[in-house]
């Protein structure tokens, strides 16, 4: 089922000296139950495109449709809260909250009572393959792999059907990289989400159902 559609999406921004066209006329449709990989050189516009898909900003031109609704007419905070989750290379966990509290955050944001949120958070952490002793630890005390799994657990807790991952394995070793990729694949194939992964890593890209490439802001499908 198509869930996210890019239609002639462009994005430019002004720096001190020039106007940068980060994304140029990108069009593509993403469906649930599949994992997509977007590859490309640094500065090719991958992360910008991911941020646009996460509703963190609106395109300068073109439209992004979510379940057929133009994102510009959506409450983007609600969209991020209920439809889309983002995983970053730098994990972006709350450093002063424990692993469990990090996962509880989106649940509480959605209005789930504290006790129930706590129970669900433990489930997601377990699903992400984290041992119980990690639950009460703060992110700076965890390894990179553990932090990324907490980030994935948090994304799963958000309950959306779109998972956007920006270089999720960029800071991880090979063993952790594999585990994370497996988790993401399970998220797409078992939970029926649309998982869109931005990666430099061809091995990670190879695990995707479809591979897209960004080059100078232009998005093309290569597989």
């Amino acid at each position: 089922m198509n869930i996210l559609k890019l239609e002639n999406v462009s994005y430019s921004y002004q720096t001190k000296y020039q106007t940068i066209e980060a994304v140029k006329h990108a069009s593509f449709t993403f469906a649930t139950g599949k994992m997509y990989a977007i590859t490309g050189e640094s500065g090719s516009g991958k992360s910008t495109l991911l941020s646009l898909m996460a509703g963190l900003d609106l395109p300068s031109e073109g439209h992004i449709f979510v379940n057929g609704t133009d994102m510009s007419s959506l409450d983007r905070d609600q969209y991020r809260c209920r439809e889309a989750s983002v995983i970053y290379q730098a994990f972006h966990l709350f450093s002063l909250l424990t692993a469990k509290e990090n996962v509880m955050f989106p649940l509480e944001l959605r209005g789930i009572p504290r006790k129930e949120a706590s129970r669900q958070a433990e489930n997601y952490l377990q699903k992400a393959g984290l041992p119980e002793k990690i639950y009460r630890q703060f992110p700076p005390m965890m390894s990179g792999g553990e932090q990324q799994r907490v980030a994935i657990a948090r994304a799963m807790a958000a309950g959306g059907k779109i998972l956007l991952a920006d270089e999720p394995t960029g800071n991880l070793d090979t063993e952790n990289e594999k585990k994370i990729v497996e988790l993401l694949k399970a998220f797409a194939h078992e939970d029926g989400c649309a998982v869109i992964v931005i990666t430099h890593n061809p091995e990670v890209a190879a695990e995707a159902d479809k591979i897209l490439r960004m080059c100078d802001g232009i998005l093309t499908q290569i597989q």
């Binding site: 996460a54 963190l56 905070d77 609600q78 969209y79 991020r80 809260c81 209920r82 989750s85 983002v86 972006h92 966990l93 709350f94 955050f105 989106p106 944001l109 948090r154 958000a158």
Partner: peptide, 13 residues
């Protein structure tokens, strides 16, 4: 950083 994470997780202003 905290604000951006909160915003990216869907917290409104």
């Amino acid at each position: 950083r905290r604000v951006s994470i909160e915003r990216s997780l869907g917290a409104n202003k």
